[in-house]
Amino acid sequence: MNAETNGQPAIHLSGLSKRFGRTWAVDDLSLEVPRGSTFGLIGPNGAGKTTTIKMLMGVLRPTAGRAEALGLDVLEEPVQLKQRVGYVPESHHIYRWMRVEQVIGFCRAAFESWNDQTCQEMLDLFALDPRKKVKHLSKGMLVKLSLLVAVSHDPELPVLDEPMAGLDPLAREEFLDGVLRTICERGRTVLFSTHTLDDVRRLADTVGILYEGRLLVHRNIEELLAGTKRVRTTLRDGAAPEHLPDGTIWQRVEGREWSVTVSDFSPEKLQALREENAVDHVEVIDLGLEDVFKDFVKGKRAGL
């Protein structure tokens, strides 16, 4: 970390909110992503991931709050910010009449730190034909071109909004293992949103779960998985759950079977659950990221 960065986080969102009509797409979102980390933003459809990323990229004005990236206010210094950030939007609207080589030339003119070698490597990796017009590219090829544009200037902060959507499994694998992993290993900060939790598990060190514009969780993945457990118990005849353990994020009762997912799980919490509820058999189950995500969202929907 150099003196210039001075320990600042790569991304700093403070009370960020966005309202469309009467709906709050993002509601008082505060978040810090440290430099050098890989942050996976997940959430169900309509959770506010794309809106958050657009505000972070300075292409959508927040209703309230402030966004900073790499120490720059995104609304005050948008050009300097975009020079250092590589943004892959959710939908790709590159000029349809341009050829791939013209898109590259156009973007090379825009970015001061454009790296022809990286660009060529990406062209080869994705097997993109430079002479082909954008309107003749398939959806997957368009995604590849968008990724190429976003990472060929060696950005300090790639921000990728569902970057793998539309990629075939082979290209996805190559991009994940080849390009993104290289970027991550260079110590760059990466923020990406996705519905593919497998990608988050493989790449991210920190995860954020967004639901209805609010950040439910923002934690290191290993800590999150280590601390979130599902406790499956059998209720005694006629008994009902009486006291939910602290940190309960989801529960379900089916007949006599009571399942409860608890964050920051500890033996003390388990002991309390046993003492405060009429339960017989108790089983503690480790959860994968997908289950944790589902339980957080289902629990929130149920009002927990």
Partner: peptide, 13 residues
């Protein structure tokens, strides 16, 4: 045609 969105991602003032 939403090409302005692509343009907005690039560091042109």
């Amino acid at each position: 045609d939403r090409s302005a969105e692509f343009l907005a991602c690039l560091p042109f003032s």
